[in-house]
Computed example of a mutant assay.
Amino acid sequence: MLSRSGGIAIVAADSAETHGFELYPLSDAFKDQVHGYFRAHVIQPTNPLDLGDLFDFDLYTTILEEVLKIEAVDGVLFQHGAVAEEREPSRRLITAARELSFRYQKPVALCYLTDEEELAYTKRTIGYPIFTEPFDALGALAVSRDHYLRQGIQKERPPVFAVDRARVKGIVQDALREKRDLLLPEAFEVIQAYGIPVARYQVVHQKDELKRALDEIGKPVAMKIVSPEISHKSDAGGVILNIHHLPEAEEAYERIKKLSGKEASAVVLQEMVSGGKEVILGTKQDPSFGPVVLFGLGGIYVEILQESSLRVAPISRPEAEEMISELKASRILRGVRGEPPSDINAMIDCLLRLSQLAVDFPEIEGIDINPVMALEKGAVAVDCRIVLKE
């Protein structure tokens, strides 16, 4: 705490305790340095730091910066008062405090005691939060502290996984050269390269390949069109579910191949994943914030609950956990009415890997993994759409 008045410094110290703050114990070397600035050497430097013996506002800025340099100091309350002839230097001081706060990425709560006209002018022109009461300033610091503690930003960095980035780069570059979005098998390859599990599948180009694919995957299967002309497969009738026998697969194959204006390039056969809850994972490139990660419940829940969570990538593990837990529907994933809980850790892992993918490849406009089946043990993607920037 820095203050031009010892009296309001004491009041602020009491308020700091109320808001759960601890006052950092200044080192002897720092106190000796500040004491050397004083004229009368009567005031003994401590925290709160009474600057009443100083009238050099440049020294205020110097002391503030030295405090912000201390690694263990998380934030500063700066209480400043000014009379008429001190308006201009006070404005420069407040501007400097704002710049130092941004430079050191630590909050500086400014409590400015002056007349109403000067206060209004300063708030309007400097563009930085200014308070008139230490209790309010400390309350704002407490809100900021609690927010970042919840986010886990101070404690944990986003993880970096070992991934096959070269494989993804090749797929993306090929599609960009051909001026198209990724085909379904390519989208599966991309998320698999980043460690996101995909339900077993086979790509079939000829009808006589169906039997081998069915035998390898097992039954039942879903069959899905692969075509650069059809991105919304279900809307176009390009997804046929619950196929148990080869004759059904052959009939579905013929129907799918005829959907496109040109013949579909291939058909995907994929295992039908039973049990679990459907969730949605996605990313998009926001023009202001860059890559953003999305999580929500899918299937029948998406229309009923209509809620999702968003975070700016890259995200840390606590952020991924919060994306899931903050949804009202998260209790469905934890298990209700005797149903087994879904594997929350597996979904967190998928979110973290998707976040890394979105950051690594800004040329990807959006990813929609819908659904991901959240199982009692593990989670697997069943469908995926990846759109590239034009």
Rank of each mutant, 00 (worst) to 15 (best):
P291Q: 03
R334L: 02
D56T: 13
D174T: 13
A266D: 06
R150G: 08
D383Y: 03
E189G: 15
G338S: 09
L119S: 02
L357Y: 04
E254N: 13
P362A: 02
D235G: 06
L59P: 11
G20C: 15
R4A: 11
F361Y: 03
R98H: 05
H80W: 08
L68K: 06
V108K: 00
A358F: 09
S265Y: 07
I280Y: 01
I348A: 03
D115V: 14
E254L: 14
D349P: 10
P314I: 15
E116A: 11
K219I: 14
T132C: 13
V267K: 08
L182Y: 05
Y128T: 10
N345D: 09
I230F: 02
T62Y: 09
A199W: 06
H232A: 10
A140V: 14
G20V: 15
Q192I: 14
V267A: 08
V336A: 01
I304H: 09
K389C: 09
T122C: 14
A175N: 07
E365G: 06
L210C: 04
G238K: 05
F21P: 06
V190R: 01
G338V: 11
D136E: 12
G152K: 08
S5A: 09
S342E: 01
V302I: 13
A29M: 12
A252W: 03
R103C: 01
T122A: 13
R200P: 04
S90Q: 05
G6V: 15
L59T: 06
V312I: 15
Q356H: 02
A16N: 10
E376Q: 02
A213K: 05
T46R: 09
R311M: 12
